[in-house]
Design a protein around this nucleic acid. Structure first.
Lengths: 322, 322
DNA sequence: CATCGATGATCAATCGTTTGCGCAACTGGA
DNA sequence: TCCAGTTGCGCAAACGATTGATCATCGATG
């Protein structure tokens, strides 16, 4: 048993020849022996399980993220536990068990949009290694994507198509990712010398219905925008629907660009022009950061810079006046 | 320690008064004590972890299923491990570890479309409690949704709108779920006395590109169909795109109904008429079946009959000739 | 007073792996 | 021949929870 354990652990300090190691490996395969997970976990105080906690799995962006997290976990010999239900969220009973019982080595957490970071940090309690995505919380490492660059890219595309009044359908005002996107928007508007009217910026949120409300608000302006940057593809879908409801043609009356790309954007009516963000890479980077935390590294704020946001032109944008 | 363990386990045979039990519970909360997961797992030979293994998380239908699986697992005091990457699929290294090391109490497995059931059963090896969804494999329990009823519902909708030549864009011919859908289609066509032309049935698969290919094939017929039942919402998205590419208007030239509903279907161009299937309930039923297997129950083939498939009329279908 | 049942406290064995350590055998070099 | 290094083998302790069993105490009843 001693030798078997040393060989299967790949322990370099074990006093065993390579020939013996190979013999042991062969024997283990032949009898179908696998070490017992619970025995190992108990002795090593480690489960090789990473949890991904998200507020929602219906979000069109979820699939890329989850693939990134899983691939990085598996590449490091771990498996991924997915948590979406209410009980599994911070503050829930099962979350408490997950953390308190030592079921996972660490957690990648996507906070709910609009969550108060200090409050969340208190709820989570730093009882397990933690990395948040999209939004930092005090005391935890975090990884984000370059939101500002994304909205900047979107504005530049619309500006180059001749749009001077560009609306912004943003996330909730309290949301850090929403603020980063707004910052990029403002910067690009200023840089391009576009119409800098505060009424062109809305803060409804990332859901489909939020996109609808934003468009309703913007189209009610005395001088409505001819271009629109929507801070999230879910909301953009709602924006399209609302424009249609109000008899506005996209892209003829209103050109729309969404931050984040997703499979769904290819099939909207019309297909959405998007800024593709590195969500798969975000997932991988979050797990890498988590391993650094587990290894005792310092709290860090990281951003995924590569691949950079990429404009994907489809059919929701056109040159103004066309 | 002994009393603490008995109380927190909720052991009814323990000789402890309710007052003592309450005192122990309070004390545990106060000192933040949680039993150690690995210690328990080792002693009990059980991890309270259920694995959900799927071939794909980008499928628009995935989110309902995963919510059902997770909610049922959590309701039973378990957590859900998600496995999508290649290494985690049956035959992969991590799959072998998952099963061989006793990391999960059981597995809900969605086989890849077109997988040979006998081959898969051999690969999996019945080394852990297993339930498959959509497709049975020898020796394992399975749960399916009423595919035949779905396609029947779709045909009936088209027939009542005046369509006499209805095409069928099916899954792969080897796929059990595809065959069930085809069966429902044939039955409804026969029952309604519609044009029973074998050339109206295609077997390309469930992917978007497959839907495109099916439509190309059907529109090439000397007498193309005026109505189309697509056996999957992903393929339906492709079908819509292909019709457009070939200058056919939906629903005027071709009415399209898809099996399965998803958020994405509301936003297609035009919004898809679908038959909503009980995927959330499928997830829950699969976990319930898995617990029966774990408890030593017999191998069973189950179907989720409630809620029944429901027609959701959107804008991809119209009365023939309109 | 003696007996019985309920209850609290305590102990030890078990679950399966890991790992430090000691002993023994073998090999090669001085 | 002696010494040192390498390697194989085996042992025991540790990780933390569970659970059967034993002993002691208390209260109620005959």
């Amino acid at each position: 048993m001693s030798a078997v354990s040393r060989v299967l652990s790949g322990d370099p300090a074990a006093r065993l020849s390579e020939a013996t190691r190979e013999r042991v490996r062969q024997a283990a395969v032949e009898v179908g022996y696998h070490p017992n997970f619970a025995g190992r976990a108990l002795k090593l105080a480690r489960t090789d399980v990473i949890a991904l906690i998200v507020p929602d799995v219906t979000n069109a962006l979820f699939s890329m993220l989850v693939q990134g997290v899983e691939d990085e976990a598996v590449a490091r010999g771990c498996v991924m536990l997915l948590a979406r239900s209410e009980d599994m969220q911070p503050g829930g009973t099962m979350f408490d068990r997950l953390v308190g019982e030592g079921r996972v080595d660490g957690i990648v957490l996507q906070p709910r949009d609009g969550t108060d970071p200090a409050e969340l940090a208190e709820t989570v309690g730093m009882r397990a290694p933690l990395v948040t995505i999209h939004q930092p919380i005090p005391g935890a490492s975090s990884v984000v994507v370059p939101d500002a660059l994304a909205t900047r890219t979107a504005v530049e595309h619309l500006a180059s198509a001749g749009h001077r009044r560009i609306g912004f359908a943003g996330g909730l005002a309290a949301s850090p990712s929403a603020r980063r996107r707004a910052e990029g928007f403002r910067e690009a508007v200023a840089r391009a010398g576009l119409d800098d009217d505060p009424a062109l910026m809305t803060w409804r949120g990332y859901q489909e219905g939020d996109g609808r409300a934003a468009v309703a608000e913007l189209l009610a302006l005395p001088e409505p925008p001819t271009g629109l940057v929507v801070a999230n593809v879910n909301a953009a879908v709602g924006a399209l629907a609302q424009a249609r409801t109000q008899g506005r043609a996209v892209p003829e009356d209103l050109s729309v660009v969404a931050v984040h790309d997703a499979k769904t954007a290819e099939h909207t009516w019309p297909p959405l022009t998007c800024v593709r963000m590195p969500l798969y890479e975000l997932g991988r980077a979050a797990v890498a950061a988590l391993f650094d935390v587990i290894a005792g590294g310092p709290v860090e704020r990281r951003a995924v810079e590569s691949p950079p946001p990429e404009l994907v032109v489809r059919e929701s944008t056109a040159v103004r006046g066309s």
